[in-house]
Design a protein around this nucleic acid. Structure first.
Lengths: 189, 189
DNA sequence: CGTCTATTTGAATGTACTCAAAAGCGGTGG
DNA sequence: CCACCGCTTTTGAGTACATTCAAATAGACG
């Protein structure tokens, strides 16, 4: 598991063994049951989560409707960047879809790491950039594609979502009702 | 105008007079006619634009349809963050809506400034964060509000857009057809 | 096995769409 | 300065797609 984290970390920033150990030592670990919340809307998100095993989503609620923003699987980092950065109450809830185990990097640790390991700054910037790029892709899909095309693209590019996520969450991610997704699926086969 | 830039800059990062002069000296200036492009899709965006006077939008084209991403007015920075950062061809076109004069910060200047003025790093990070937050607001509006509500929110929060931007661009920003926007407007009064 | 939740299906409705045409507006040249 | 041309906005009629409400079926979990 340590190796998994190390290998994944190297995608973002090259750290020496010593530096990695320093980083690794600041991590906490946790597991969440299926449907358990990693963060509840209204609280300040003071942690970033790295998924070791399992799968999560985040969603907003408006007019009593859940709007799923994104799904994340093993090997991904996620934090409510807005809340984490500006320390204001989060508008989103982060929820485990499956039983999920995570590594947890607290904001305090992160700041400490910035001071101790200048190279680590890069990690923070890349997390921000990733957040931006991910959101951008999603926004473009929402504005430029029909619900059918959005679903087809999901099937094509992210089969894990189709395989592991309940349909009603997928519907809420696509911006449609479960009934409509059911009909779209029917229309394909 | 220099004062305008200086004052605006102070919103992001506190620079000494000397540092500001250093920054200011790297800027280039330009004006664009109504409907002229600041950046054409397919090219790499190597500049960030600060709007001194006027108004711009950026848009993507898919299926022959323009999808307006955002409008910017005097006092705002804009760059295709994706293209600027990763130096890959931009998928968007940046277009002047009115006759527009801008200050131009090239990527080369920006990198130079990062080296010379460490405090300037903050500016880059904040631009990224702003880009993220802006996109996020937009995405949430698109997923959570009806076309009518999106329009009403625009009227409420950004009257400049209503006053200065042609309706068909507003429609493309809201994700609807000009005809539909016309009907929505009619339904309000 | 039974209960609770998720998914599917049906029927009616609504919202935005397309196609088509009229009205409005702005800029240009005579 | 006014008439004309081209582009934008409005309006009308019919259509497509997703929605709502309601109910049946299927699946998951204790």
């Amino acid at each position: 598991m340590k190796a998994f984290i190390k290998q994944n970390m190297s995608r973002y920033v090259k750290l020496s063994n010593e530096e990695f150990e320093r980083f690794y030592a600041t991590l906490k670990f946790g597991t969440f049951k299926k449907r358990e919340d990693l963060l509840v809307s209204g609280n300040i998100c003071r942690e970033a989560f790295f998924i070791i095993e399992g799968c999560i989503r985040y969603y907003n609620v408006s007019d009593g409707e859940e709007h799923t923003g994104q799904f994340f699987f093993e090997g991904s980092w996620y934090s409510d960047y807005d809340s984490f950065l500006f320390e204001r109450p989060s508008k989103q809830t982060i929820q485990a879809i499956e039983k999920t185990s995570v590594a947890i990097l607290s904001k305090a640790s992160m700041n400490q790491l910035y001071d101790d390991l200048p190279r680590f700054e890069r990690f923070g910037r890349l997390m921000a950039e990733n957040a931006f790029m991910g959101l951008r892709q999603r926004t473009e899909a929402l504005t430029q594609l029909s619900a059918l095309d959005r679903y087809m693209r999901l099937v094509e590019n992210r089969p894990k979502v189709i395989q592991r996520v309940p349909q009603r969450f997928i519907a809420s991610y696509l911006g449609i009702r479960p009934q409509s997704l059911s009909r779209i699926r029917k229309s394909i086969t």
